[in-house]
Write a protein that binds this DNA or RNA. Sequence first.
DNA 1: TATCGATATGTAATATCATGCATATCGAAT
DNA 2: ATTCGATATGCATGATATTACATATCGATA
Lengths: 115, 115
Amino acid sequence: MAKTKEYTIQAQIWINEGSNSFLGPGRIMLLENIIKTGSITNAAKEMKMSYRQAWQLVEDMNKHAKEPLVEKILGGKGGSGSKVSKAGEKAIILFKELENKIKLYSEEELKKIQM
Amino acid sequence: MAKTKEYTIQAQIWINEGSNSFLGPGRIMLLENIIKTGSITNAAKEMKMSYRQAWQLVEDMNKHAKEPLVEKILGGKGGSGSKVSKAGEKAIILFKELENKIKLYSEEELKKIQM
DNA sequence: TATCGATATGTAATATCATGCATATCGAAT
DNA sequence: ATTCGATATGCATGATATTACATATCGATA
């Protein structure tokens, strides 16, 4: 008997500013991990990414956002760190809503056809 | 004056068979180039991909499709080549329709919000 | 059975990219 | 001024694809 084949759809989105990438799943996860850990360094560790790369992503996000998504905190008794701004929190929410809608829509559309 | 920032959305889809990738934009383009050129070898050249990689993609697509998307032609006076099957042609059309709908939907949804 | 142009496949070489590491800097708090 | 934990950044190293190359095979046609 023939092996049954089940097909699923995967949808991914990215937001660009002009021709530059601005937000994608990886960057959103990074933002979430910065909220969770309080620093780029620890967020990077959390997702097994090098600090260097995480830092560059933050730099790039900030450059392409209307206002910074991540703000640095320097000094203080506990040393330094980074924090996601209000604009950053909003970006996370908007992105995930968008992503969710599109994934749902994709699945519905796949159901309509026979692969 | 502040630099205006224009945001656009990019959506990409892939079809999986079980947990294996089956079709994506690259594979679809490969199929189209096989139609155009009549062989995997020339399709690969067309898109500056190594023959090896192109061949593996074809192999993998066929393995995960219900019936082969690409069929080999061996022998004959003109030597050999490959051809996209009816199932392959159908897959191209279905994929592109799906992709198109999702891209349109994504753009509509982006318009609704303010990034 | 000789020819043809590609397919099919392993292996060595290479390019690409991310990471690790080292160092300088930061600025509030004490 | 010292301390703190991170940020900021260059550069060498390493891991991980991707490619190039070489070779064997294919099968209808003539």
